[in-house]
Write a protein that binds this DNA or RNA. Structure first.
Lengths: 336, 336
DNA sequence: ATGAAAGCGCTAACAA
DNA sequence: TTGTTAGCGCTTTCAT
């Protein structure tokens, strides 16, 4: 299977003109006579000439490629982000090279090296949970390649960040529960070592505080996946410690909670309201449909790509910016 | 923000040797003295030298990049495929440029052009539902760029295909329904234009035939998303034409069907059994959990990438191959 | 209006 | 053992 790409030289030889004339004719340069242009364009089209962007990249020192590193592709949130990135990038004439770190620090480092070798014009990164050392990112910056972090930021690295306001989102969710009459609100929180867990917990506490509801540590339980959600709620039920609302760190955990509640014969939302976080596909389709926080991954991807393109196309050093993607409470049938 | 990449020339100048010596030293060429190698390697490492793969690509006429076109990234099945592709590609030293067609024929054509321009070494494609004309794919073949289609194939195009045994999977699903006592089995099928739709319909028919259940065209309705699933079943209900089972072309449609059944007060699976197709995350979490066909996207991605790499690394023309990924019926609570 | 030549970063055949 | 040269495909001064 051998490649058969026609080049500018081929066209030049065939039409007995020089390569530079062909090049100019192809880009409608004013110096070239209409007749020559017509001949060149006609022949190029006939032969299906496709400019070699590798040669262009080498010449212009611009690859028109954006490097992307995500922890996992198979994840509704991240794939939404990727989709948003692709949308903006392709419109601007950029290609996207994708790579996943699989939450492995080693792989993340390897990915940055590869992308640097590919001379990507910029990188979009969501770091792994493991990543605590940012030298590889500083190295990218030192090479003069702009970066934008999304969802998971890196303090102290010269780059833009795109995040959501976790604290406010959690506050909104909790306040909504309070406003619909709930007083005993359990929070199923995320792992200690993630910033989002803290932020969301803080938003929850602030809402309670505002409405003079005492904070009870027994009502905050670590659970961030389906199974843990099931177990946490089963325990509450067995202790006859039924709350009137549950606010979870993500949708899957909420579904686990709902499953355990149903199992215990508890009516949702009549006896217990449930609010999730993310607004993934599943939240719309669960039974009952889940009230949740919309965390717009597509928008985050679009925004991150736009910030990156701005940086790429700006000669001057821009100051580090942090963009906050708005969230929204989506009320469905798991609450009043 | 200006790029600061060090080149072989820079190293050569600094060490007062020629560029070719540096090049050879860096790849441990036997001709070069150990001393020179040491100096070069040390300096290169110190300066963080990263070979410019664009220059390498131009020289070697190999980009080590695979082009990927999917209809939609935000889709559990496709993101699984992408993940599998990335796994194999990155291990083999290939990058993946991703692009989505958004089920638009125009965009698909545009994507193929762009990727061709990028001189990708091969393409992995799942075409849009709209695509009926394959000239743009033939053009890729004419350029000598190998292709592998996955999930959605293109008859008459010189390429490999990776599919699942849709016919058998549909047969298995339908026969399972029959074996659990169902006789009036509705099939919500996919669009005419996709081979998978036909295959799944055929499997459904063959199962009926085997068990001497007459095929009724009124029981086969085109519906391939949530809303259409809802509508199709609502119509059946309003016509008092309740089946005892529904087999759908994908999970989302099944959930739509379930939603409409619940709305009509129909018990699942007591009155109607439901079987989906794909085994995405949602199927495990729906209420009731959905019986479905496991369609291993990750494996499909891995296989497709492997076939493509084989083609890329083989000079000889290989015959068109079709690889079938095994499926499995996952029985949950939406059936007996 | 067109052509010749140089160069982007790298490799490899050929010289020395 | 190392250097010189040419060339991958293209653009772009600088001639003509």
């Amino acid at each position: 299977m051998k490649r058969t790409f026609i080049t500018i030289k081929d066209i030049a030889r065939e039409l007995s003109i020089s390569a530079s004339t062909v090049s100019r004719a192809l880009k409608d340069h004013p110096d070239i006579s209409q007749e020559t242009k017509d001949r060149v364009v006609a022949y190029a089209r006939e032969m299906g000439y496709q400019p070699n962007s590798i040669a262009l990249s080498l010449k212009s020192r611009q690859s028109h490629v954006i490097g992307l590193i995500v922890p996992e592709i198979v994840h509704h949130f991240f794939s939404s982000v990727i989709s948003g990135i692709d949308e903006v990038a392709s419109k601007a004439g950029y290609n996207v090279i994708i790579s996943q770190s699989n939450e492995s620090f080693e792989r993340e480092i390897h990915n940055t090296r590869t992308l640097l070798g590919s001379r990507v014009d910029g990188m979009l990164i969501s770091r792994t949970k493991e990543t605590v050392d940012y030298d590889h990112f500083r190295h990218i910056d030192a090479a003069g390649v702009p970066m934008v972090f999304f969802d998971r930021t890196c303090e102290g690295v010269n780059a833009d960040n795109v995040i959501i306001d976790d604290k406010k989102a959690a506050f909104d969710a909790t306040e909504y529960l309070i406003n619909t009459g709930c007083k005993k609100i359990v929070h199923l929180k995320g792992p200690e070592n993630l910033t989002i867990s803290h932020q969301r917990l803080t938003g929850y506490r602030q809402a309670l505080e505002k409405h003079a509801i005492p904070y009870k540590s027994a009502y905050v339980i670590e659970a961030d996946n389906y199974e843990k959600g099931v177990n946490a709620v089963r325990r509450l039920l067995s202790e006859h410690n039924l709350p009137d609302a549950i606010f979870t760190v993500n949708d899957l955990t909420a579904l686990g909670a709902i499953s355990a509640l149903k199992e215990g014969g508890i009516k949702i939302p009549d006896q217990v309201s449930v609010v999730g976080f993310t607004n993934g596909v599943i939240s719309r389709l669960s039974d009952p449909p889940l009230t949740t926080i919309e965390q717009n991954g597509f928008l985050m991807g679009e925004k991150a790509a736009k910030l990156l393109l701005e940086r790429i196309n700006n000669e001057e050093e821009l100051p580090s910016r942090t963009e906050v993607i708005p969230t929204k409470l989506i009320v469905r049938k798991s609450t009043y």
